[in-house]
Simulated assay, not measured.
Amino acid sequence: MGTTARIPLATRRSSDLSKHSAEVFAEAEVHPVTVTRRDGEALVLMSQREAEGRSRLLRFAAQLITVTLDDNGSLAERMAKAFPWMLALSPADRESCAQDLVDAARASFSTDQPHLAIAELTSWKETATAIAAGLDSTDPEWLDEDENVERP
């Protein structure tokens, strides 16, 4: 179920790296590729973006495990200990954030798609940062429908 157990979508022989390296590299930019070797263990070739996404998801999973081991307070209160930026959110938003993060993590783990949890985490963190900067205290200025704006 975890990202480290994922079986890449493609398998290539090590000889393909020398004969068709551009093709193999292009494929690895899209999804991880298993490279089999006669003289050793198979290797996985993937983009740095993919590897970093997996690493971020594992760090997030470690934080969620820490939250679940704590039994003091609500889920939102425990999550705010692990993610102090959540304190910039209203209590109701903290509850929504906590549940959204858990749901996104479960979806990421079960589908092996790290971007689901990372996008949710980033979205909530950026929202909290904007609120802390006071960007929620002013009403937006809406343009009239018939008002034309020059192109930059």
Rank of each mutant, 00 (worst) to 15 (best):
E150P: 05
D136R: 02
R6Q: 08
N72S: 13
N148A: 14
S47Q: 08
E147V: 15
E141G: 12
A128S: 07
A80E: 11
A51D: 04
V35S: 08
P84S: 08
I131K: 12
M86I: 09
V44W: 01
A117E: 01
T122R: 15
D146V: 08
S14G: 14
Q48N: 05
S108M: 03
S14T: 11
E50A: 15
D100S: 10
A88N: 09
D139G: 04
G40I: 00
L43H: 02
D136E: 11
R49E: 07
T138H: 04
A104R: 01
A80H: 09
R106L: 05
A98F: 01
W142A: 07
T138I: 07
M46H: 09
L69Q: 15
V44D: 07
R38C: 00
L101S: 09
H20I: 01
S15C: 05
A22I: 02
I7D: 06
I65H: 05
S74E: 03
L64H: 04
S108L: 03
R49I: 03
L58Q: 07
P140I: 06
W124Q: 07
A22P: 09
F60L: 06
A61Y: 12
A61E: 12
T122W: 08
D139C: 02
Q99F: 13
S21T: 11
L57G: 00
P32A: 05
M1A: 13
A80P: 15
A107F: 13
L64S: 03
K81H: 06
L43W: 07
D93L: 13
S96T: 06
D70F: 11
V30I: 10
S123R: 15
R151V: 14
T68G: 05
R37N: 12
N72T: 14
G2Y: 12
E27H: 05
S74D: 04
D100Y: 07
R106S: 08
D144Y: 12
A92Y: 02
H115D: 15
M46W: 09
M86H: 04
A128M: 10
W85D: 03
V30G: 00
G73Y: 12
I131E: 05
W124R: 06
F109M: 08
V24C: 08
R78E: 10
A82M: 07
S15E: 14
A107R: 12
A117Y: 01
T34Y: 01
T111L: 12
V44G: 03
R6H: 14
M79N: 07
E120K: 14
A62P: 04
R6G: 02
P8F: 09
R151S: 15
E141V: 15
L45M: 08
R13F: 14
E50Q: 15
R56W: 08
A22Q: 08
R6Y: 13
P114V: 00
A42N: 09
T4L: 15
F109V: 11
P8L: 10
D93F: 03
I118Q: 02
A26H: 01
P32C: 04
V44K: 13
V102Q: 04
Q48Y: 11
E120W: 01
S74V: 09
R54T: 09
L64A: 02
L43F: 00
G73D: 00
D112P: 00
L121H: 13
R37D: 06
S14E: 14
T127K: 15
G73P: 15
L121W: 14
A28M: 01
T36A: 06
G73I: 03
I131H: 01
G73F: 15
V35L: 13
R12Y: 06
